[in-house]
Simulated scan of single mutants.
Amino acid sequence: MPFDLINGKFVPEKSNIWRDCVDGYYDWVKEHLEEGAPLNESDHCGDPPLLLAAGNGHLACCKLLLDEGADIEQRNVMGETPIIRAAHNGHFQTVKFLVESGADVNSLDLGDNGALHWAAMRGHVEIVKYLLQHGADKHLRNKQDKVPIDLCQPCWSNAYRFAREVLAEY
């Protein structure tokens, strides 16, 4: 990251602003939004800004981006949405915020995996519970013909059995 000798601070390169925002650079995100940076376009890696912020659990950036008009259902090249990425990475507060903001709990990526599939596979028990309480369909099958409980395996998470119990009881 370059250092601005005149102002005495580090500044992100414009081409990396969305990557930087997910590293917690809220003020820089805000500044670039004021300069007209696009809210719903993917960066050079194929990820739009809200998806990046959600996937890294940067709740303040998520709030800012939605307040500025970002599409809550924006997708990357793999069809992931912000809620799918947040659930996959275990960011409970971000998942909760996105659901409360109107995110589709049953949106699917290109492999037909939803947030519940990813949370179950990764053993994110609280996210599994929350998604089920908010309408996630535990019977949705992905392209490998697996429902979320099928993905609760020890190869993916040490907490798989707890996620399995929640899915079985719900």
Score class of each variant (00 low, 15 high):
residue 1 M to V: 13
residue 3 F to W: 14
residue 4 D to L: 05
residue 4 D to E: 09
residue 8 G to P: 07
residue 10 F to D: 12
residue 14 K to L: 12
residue 19 R to Q: 12
residue 19 R to P: 02
residue 20 D to F: 13
residue 20 D to M: 13
residue 21 C to H: 06
residue 22 V to E: 15
residue 24 G to H: 06
residue 24 G to S: 08
residue 25 Y to H: 13
residue 25 Y to I: 10
residue 26 Y to E: 10
residue 27 D to E: 14
residue 28 W to C: 09
residue 29 V to G: 11
residue 31 E to A: 10
residue 32 H to V: 08
residue 32 H to C: 11
residue 33 L to C: 07
residue 35 E to C: 01
residue 38 P to H: 02
residue 42 S to E: 13
residue 43 D to H: 01
residue 43 D to L: 02
residue 43 D to K: 00
residue 45 C to L: 15
residue 46 G to W: 01
residue 46 G to R: 09
residue 48 P to F: 03
residue 55 G to V: 05
residue 56 N to G: 12
residue 58 H to N: 15
residue 59 L to T: 09
residue 65 L to N: 05
residue 67 D to F: 06
residue 74 Q to V: 15
residue 78 M to P: 00
residue 80 E to R: 09
residue 84 I to N: 02
residue 86 A to N: 04
residue 90 G to N: 04
residue 90 G to A: 06
residue 97 F to L: 14
residue 104 D to P: 00
residue 107 S to E: 12
residue 108 L to N: 07
residue 108 L to I: 05
residue 108 L to V: 07
residue 113 N to Y: 09
residue 113 N to W: 09
residue 114 G to P: 06
residue 114 G to W: 03
residue 115 A to F: 06
residue 115 A to N: 08
residue 116 L to E: 00
residue 116 L to K: 08
residue 119 A to Q: 02
residue 122 R to Q: 14
residue 122 R to K: 15
residue 123 G to H: 01
residue 124 H to N: 10
residue 124 H to K: 09
residue 127 I to Q: 00
residue 128 V to I: 08
residue 129 K to S: 10
residue 129 K to P: 08
residue 131 L to R: 06
residue 131 L to I: 00
residue 135 G to Q: 07
residue 136 A to H: 08
residue 137 D to L: 05
residue 139 H to I: 05
residue 139 H to V: 08
residue 144 Q to P: 05
residue 145 D to M: 12
residue 149 I to G: 01
residue 149 I to T: 10
residue 149 I to C: 02
residue 149 I to M: 08
residue 151 L to G: 03
residue 152 C to V: 07
residue 153 Q to P: 00
residue 158 N to L: 13
residue 160 Y to V: 03
residue 160 Y to R: 03
residue 162 F to R: 15
residue 162 F to I: 05
residue 163 A to D: 01
residue 167 L to H: 07
residue 167 L to Q: 05
residue 169 E to D: 14
residue 169 E to L: 12
residue 169 E to Q: 15
residue 170 Y to S: 14
